[in-house]
Design a protein around this nucleic acid. Structure first.
Lengths: 118, 118
DNA sequence: CTACGAGCTGCCATCGATGTGAGGTCCCGA
DNA sequence: TCGGGACCTCACATCGATGGCAGCTCGTAG
């Protein structure tokens, strides 16, 4: 199939599909006119790529992960994903901490000794 | 005091202090040589600015907030901060959701029917 | 007088997935 | 044959706080 159809079937924009290719996540043959031709399997691959993005993985990490999944190498995939999970946890913790700080700011701003004109 | 001293006393880099000024968060007089001169109050102001940043507020929001704090306008400050808190909550929720998706990817990757060569 | 340190402005880089637009090729239907 | 649509590549913009460099001025210590 061509890129427009793949986009329609996966929900990814045409732009994104080209980007995935540029990042080494997705490969395509070319027809004589230079247009990308995708095999059926590309639909599943794009779904997996998008799943990775929705899991906050970067294109770089997905590029590292996909070959491992294909090789069915559980320990290595697992190691990679564990690192990413820790990164995500750290980010969540950072934002949670930011929320604590924000609540402090709110406490300062709503100090009852302060008044308001408007 | 001059910018170097203010930086030393607040922990902000000289670069950041100039950025704060550029964003309208911090004002400074100039000496005849064109160098920034800060009043003592600048130390507290920078502390407040940094508190805002550490609470995940953007320079734009801090720029909106500071005048309200100075005007001691609790309701408006509160409204602004509530919006930011919601934004932060939404981000935390998004990342938490990403973690769920990541766990799904991990489940796929560690499917026991898969094997490993390395 | 000289050299150095501190300040100044202005500009580029970062990070990353995606949007967007220009300018060109190609294929198909009318 | 013409028009339009789908596709191509290339490239810039986005968002935001900060780092860092270049080239300059100025004030002061030696």
């Amino acid at each position: 199939m061509r890129i427009g159809e793949l986009a329609a079937r996966t929900g990814a924009s045409v732009r994104s599909l080209r980007y995935y290719e540029e990042q080494g996540l997705l490969s395509a043959e070319r027809d004589p006119a230079g247009r990308r031709r995708y095999a059926e399997a590309a639909v599943a691959r794009v779904a997996l790529i998008r799943r990775g993005f929705s899991a906050s993985l970067s294109s770089r990490v997905i590029a590292d992960l996909l070959p491992l999944l294909e090789a069915e190498c559980v320990p290595r995939s697992r190691a990679l994903l564990d690192v990413e999970r820790e990164r995500l946890e750290a980010q969540i913790a950072a934002m949670t901490q930011a929320r604590v700080r924000l609540d402090e700011v709110i406490a300062i701003a709503t100090d009852p000794t302060w008044k308001c004109d408007a």
